[in-house]
Design a protein around this nucleic acid. Structure first.
Lengths: 193, 193
DNA sequence: ACTATTTTGTACCAATTAGTACAAAATATA
DNA sequence: TATATTTTGTACTAATTGGTACAAAATAGT
């Protein structure tokens, strides 16, 4: 009750912060850069988000892996979950340079902070593991239903998809070209028979 | 001719700089950190290496991908090149946490600098492409000799190995455990029949 | 011993870093 | 309208960033 009304839309400024952190990483994003794109004064910033690190944590949690979210939303009701997962990977090829250059937010964070801020790095790893868990679950389901004929351990298959995701997010920066990525992805998906 | 003798061994200080850049990345490695581990004064440093960026370039070129070098050395004389490449990947699983945490120097650089210093990023990409070229060449050779039965395009297969390398260098940070990595790598190598 | 040449040490620099102090402004309720 | 509550703007800080100026030190050749 009461108090001066805040002038910004929290969702919008978090989107702006996400975009910046995602493209530049944690350390390379300066506080002043953040304030500029978020349109906040220092006072409002620290009042609302506590610190750069806390904001980053909040942004990570919120982002929580854009891809995972879209995927997790579709899968429970999808008639052929594995086919949905295949589509998820195929979509990578045709996302533009704007996505290619940013790569995977969580993957980037792991690379940047493995030997830096361990708590942030661990947070990123946990998020990636959530995606791996998702893969593993639906691989199991698909094996039961007969959609997948492979007898390989779902744990290993999920780890394979996770590694494929991690790798593509670097390879797509080397070859940001649908024609180069499409056959690569199809080849990788051959494992999921 | 003449001149005060320099007090440091260039190879040794470059090794130190490499280690630091490899673990922390480009931006996160401060000049003072470098001077400390290299055991140089500022004057000597700038006299010998020009700038932080020039040193980084020199270190990249020299490192040029430790792995690629070892590989490129063995392959020309190896009786079964593809088997040597498989071994190259299998070795990843059992390298310790000290290697896991550092990942791939060039891959790290691509991730860090795609939206930062483009010239350094491009340099890293070129180095990775050299590894890809190596794969492609020997895949072609193995297909000719009959060591490889796959009819897949060597270009795509090489890109697949490259992506696998990129991916494993992140996955190994999530699961720095031989028991987790070994079956994953074997699964990935199934493509190379 | 003198000189040209090269390497080194010390002091300095402007810019940027994340973060704080504190009072003024703007609201809801009483 | 007074008050409690919350948000905001301005000014400031101490530390760190990559890099430079310049003279002293150490050598080889004359």
């Amino acid at each position: 009750m009461a108090g001066r009304p805040s002038i910004f839309d929290e969702e919008k400024v978090l989107d702006k912060a996400t975009e910046l952190f995602w493209t530049r990483g944690y350390e390379a994003t300066s506080l002043d850069d953040l304030l500029a794109v978020m349109g906040l004064g220092k006072s409002s910033f620290y009042h609302a988000f506590g610190s750069k690190k806390k904001l980053f944590e909040q942004v990570m949690d919120r982002f929580s892996n854009d891809a995972t979210h879209r995927l997790a939303g579709d899968l429970p009701t999808h008639p052929r979950p594995m086919e949905r997962i295949r589509e998820f990977f195929r979509e990578i090829a045709d996302s533009g340079w704007n996505k290619h250059k940013k790569g995977c937010f969580m993957g980037n964070t792991v690379v940047e902070l493995t030997n830096g801020d361990r708590s942030l790095c661990t947070r990123a790893i946990r998020r990636l593991e959530r995606m791996e868990d998702l893969f593993r679950h639906y691989i199991g389901v698909a094996q039961e239903s007969g959609e997948l004929r492979t007898k390989e351990d779902p744990v290993v298959l999920a780890r394979y998809l996770q590694t494929m995701w991690n790798g593509l997010n670097i390879t797509r920066r080397m070859h940001p070209d649908p024609a180069a990525l499409r056959p690569l992805i199809e080849l990788q998906l051959q494992i999921l028979k």
